[in-house]
């Protein structure tokens, strides 16, 4: 019995260590404005103050060729807002690798953070999510952001597994705050 308890504690400790420290490779691929949908979203920041200025490293999500990718950027400024706004500027951004390290050659550095690894996932009405937890709409005409009850909203599509097979559901998410790192609310799914 005691052995089982120790085994469970060890499993718990190892999983928490794994969750805290996710390392990704910064690719030698600078972001440009080509084929980007929208602006950087789901921004997570590390701010390091020094004597003279504030340094900000950001990890964010950007949609390139209809696919969500992680990117990183860093910049300095006199204030946190100034530094972090510069850090999500497209010209300062580099793509992050989501592939195993042995398949990548053009990396510049390794970036280890305890930030959440944001990925596509099935969502439910009423759930609070990151914007890039859901895809952009498959129909380009339905992709534009719109305002509903004062909030910035957009439609999304999600492939849903039902007993009859796969079904393409649509939905609407609206931003629950006004900052680049605000979460989004799943307002509708149909």
């Amino acid at each position: 019995m005691i052995q089982w308890v120790w085994a469970l504690i060890l499993i718990g400790l190892s999983s928490s260590i794994y969750a805290e420290d996710t390392c990704r490779y910064v690719l030698d691929m600078r972001l440009t404005n080509q084929k980007l949908f929208g602006t950087p979203t789901d921004v997570q920041e590390i701010v390091t103050p020094s004597d003279t200025e504030i340094s900000c490293r950001t990890i964010y999500r950007i949609n390139i060729n209809d696919e969500w990718r992680s990117a990183t950027g860093s910049a300095t400024g006199k204030t946190r807002v100034e530094a972090c706004t510069r850090a999500i500027g497209i010209g300062n951004g580099y793509l992050l690798s989501e592939y195993p390290p042995d398949t990548i050659r053009s990396t510049t550095e390794t970036l280890c953070t305890d930030f959440e690894d944001i990925r596509l996932k099935p969502v439910k009405i009423g759930e609070r999510i990151w914007e890039s937890n859901v895809d952009i709409h498959v129909n380009p005409k339905e992709r534009n952001y719109f305002t509903y009850k004062g909030a910035r909203c957009r439609k999304f599509t999600e492939r849903v597994q039902v007993p009859q097979g796969l079904y393409s559901a649509q939905g609407v998410i609206c931003r629950a705050g006004s900052t680049p790192n605000s979460r989004w609310l799943v307002v509708d799914k149909f």
């Binding site: 099935p122 009405i125 719109f146 305002t147 039902v162 079904y167 649509q170 609407v172 149909f190």
Partner: peptide
């Protein structure tokens, strides 16, 4: 209701109804 919890018939009905609702809201905004 989430679409994955509905029958095929209800899902079609629900999708049509919500499609109209959102096209109204988006156009009018």
């Amino acid at each position: 209701k989430n679409p994955e919890d509905l029958s095929l018939e209800d899902r079609e009905f629900n999708a049509s109804a919500h499609q109209i609702l959102w096209s109204l809201r988006m156009n009018c905004s």
